[in-house]
Design a protein around this nucleic acid. Structure first.
Lengths: 226, 226
DNA sequence: CCGCATCTTGACGCGTCCTTGATGCCGAGC
DNA sequence: GCTCGGCATCAAGGACGCGTCAAGATGCGG
């Protein structure tokens, strides 16, 4: 019996595919290789892997599309590989539902670390009634937040902001995604308002010594870390 | 002999159908696949399954219609799959008799958990005779309320309001939920009337120094706290 | 037909929350 | 070392929701 995690890896360059295979095997993962977008989607549907690593540029399509397709039916962790400087495609992949990105050339340790972090996230993501991250309790059904046992009062917008971040804990949420999710599509570009409420939220739930739960990814967005 | 539960699954996209099949098989269910609304209704009629999972968008109709049709003759658990952001269709499906909804993309474990919860719910529903919260007694069967031992007279609407709040004690009940629950779906937006009766209810059961049982959540709704 | 209890509706004052722009800080690139 | 862009913070205004009250509508029983 083999209980190793299966990782779908899609990249059109054979040497990168081989390198990824070695890196993942050493980290205790099983690799399911694919070289085209179509092959990746087929493999994912026939027997869903535990996570996927997708190159953004593929012969028969875009890694963003693959990401989008998979997200129609699965929440499996997806990490995209982007060439350096390809900021735009990176952000589009994140908005299509990717969990994180790694820019090529990547270090083996960084990739594995991000993969494991993403896998850890999915463990308790089963739409639990209450999310707990050391010292912070978020009761989604009751719409109640406690820090170190004492209740914290959040305004409606602050709660929805924290809720969407916590529901996607570990995942990098772009500014645009957060804005459309909390305020609606017409606020897509209003980053100022997002910043303001992030500040208020932090003042209420973060310890004084610095941000612990809500991390900033400069130029891209925010993420909730446990 | 096969005693596995049979689940009718209706989705027009082959990839999603395949993924659902795998997920359900791993959870110990047998899948009855269908790709159109008509096919789903036929299969359900020929040999009723134990539950149904329906996509909201189908080639020859709406998942809401299928839901409505099935409900004409069966109380089997129905779970609908809705695309993210399609709040309206989701609500209509629930009003047509669906038990629960899962938004795509869904986690495998979440879907299975909700399916099992729905199956369990069909077994038996429980009733609570009387709810007590320090100094306040609510006898649901006798429709009687006492505060500190003395009877309090509530009008019919006031009682139903308190009843729904108390049955979901601790949980925040939105304006919309309270209005549909107490007054009916056509009062969904009439917040004024809700405010008025909340005020009257408070005058009768709350101590003079301020609200203790019925707390207000600005912009969202009310909740009953013990 | 009348009176009472209840429900509904609108207006008003008040408090909270949202929004916006200005300001200062920090890191990256030159 | 300097400039520039992105980020956090703060304060002020304006908008919105809430609770309250009173008057009118409705329904029921006497």
């Amino acid at each position: 019996m083999n209980d190793r995690r299966r990782i779908l890896v899609c990249d059109d360059e054979p040497q990168i595919l081989r390198a990824l295979k070695v890196i993942l095997r050493d980290a205790g993962f099983e690799t399911v290789p694919a070289t085209t977008a179509e092959e990746a989607l087929d493999l994912a549907a026939v027997r869903p892997p535990d996570a996927a690593i997708l190159d953004l540029v593929l012969p028969d399509g875009d890694g963003v599309e693959v990401c989008h397709e998979i997200r129609r039916w699965s929440r499996m962790p997806i990490i995209v590989l982007s060439a350096m400087g390809d900021e735009d495609a990176k952000v589009r992949a994140l908005e299509a539902g990717a969990d994180d990105y790694v820019t090529k050339p990547f270090g083996a340790r960084e990739l594995v670390a991000r993969l494991q972090a993403a896998l850890r996230r999915v463990q308790g993501a089963d739409e639990e009634p209450t999310i707990t991250a050391d010292g912070l309790e978020i009761d989604l059904a009751a719409r109640q937040v406690r820090r170190d046992g004492t209740d914290v009062h959040l305004t409606p917008i602050e709660f929805r902001l924290l809720e969407t971040l916590a529901r996607n804990r570990g995942r990098l949420m772009t500014h645009r995604v957060l804005l459309t999710e909390v305020w609606g599509p017409e606020y897509v570009d209003d980053i100022t308002i997002l910043r303001g409420h992030i500040a208020n939220l932090r003042r209420k739930i973060e310890p004084v010594e610095g941000p612990r739960y809500v991390r900033t990814d400069p130029g891209v967005g925010y993420r909730f870390t446990a």
